[in-house]
């Protein structure tokens, strides 16, 4: 008589009756089940205590799928962020330490939170870059406004702004401390420890540089 459709109750509800669970004698007397439960509790307790004491506990990242203690004691222990994690911004540098940023305002235009403020400036007279590109006199990011969408990184034509520091936005005491000026942003290294980028760049005057000049064209 399995799965037969019958009408139930005064409203003649139609449905397959759900069978009552078969409760064996050991379940109904309750005690064997308590013993079983206690056994499981103790197994976990002894195993985890042993692994803690002998330094055999799981590496929460590498062995996180195994049984045992997988929790991370933040902030003493930290889970490494994935490679494409968008952390605090940094401004990349050229070989000579100047910012790669050419103050084109692409990032501040693309920014949906409008948290980037750039004041462009000309290189001084005699600098080979003068007339070819500008530099940011001020480059300010309000990290409190930033929504970490990464649009600025996408927008940048010269790979000058990146979010590969691997540092998440830290909490500070006051709003002023979230205003990151150019020198702070240029101070952050990437996760590989470098303040440059992997993308090559030809400076004006070098071989391979197209020699395009804003004043002449």
């Amino acid at each position: 008589m399995k799965n037969e459709t019958v009408a139930l109750g005064p409203n003649q509800v139609v449905g397959a009756p759900v069978p009552r669970p078969q409760r064996s004698a050991s379940v109904q007397t309750y005690i064997p089940e308590i013993a079983k439960g206690l056994g499981i509790t103790m197994k976990h307790f002894f195993q985890n205590t042993k692994e803690m004491a002998f330094g055999q506990r799981n590496d929460p990242v590498l062995e996180g799928i195994e049984d045992g203690i997988n929790c991370i004691s933040y902030p003493e222990q930290k889970r490494p962020y994935p490679a494409r994690f968008r952390g605090v911004h940094r401004l990349t540098q050229r070989e000579d330490g100047a910012p790669r940023c050419v103050a084109c305002l692409c990032c501040s235009t693309a920014c949906p939170a409008q948290c980037i403020h750039i004041e462009a400036g000309e290189y001084p007279e005699g600098d080979p870059r003068r007339g070819y590109e500008r530099f940011p006199k001020r480059f300010v990011i309000d990290e409190l406004r930033c929504i970490f969408c990464g649009f600025c990184v996408e927008a940048c034509p010269v790979d000058a702004i990146r979010m590969d520091t691997g540092v998440h936005a830290a909490p500070y005491d006051s709003r002023e401390q979230f205003i990151f000026e150019k020198d702070i942003l240029m101070g952050f290294p990437g996760r590989d420890g470098s303040r440059l980028t992997g993308n090559s760049r030809h400076e004006p005057g070098e071989g391979g540089h197209p020699g395009v000049d804003r004043d002449k064209h």
Binding site: G55, L62, P80, Y81
Partner: peptide, 9 residues
């Protein structure tokens, strides 16, 4: 990254 750092444990 965890392997490079010698594990999080």
């Amino acid at each position: 990254y965890a392997i490079a750092a010698g594990g999080t444990r």
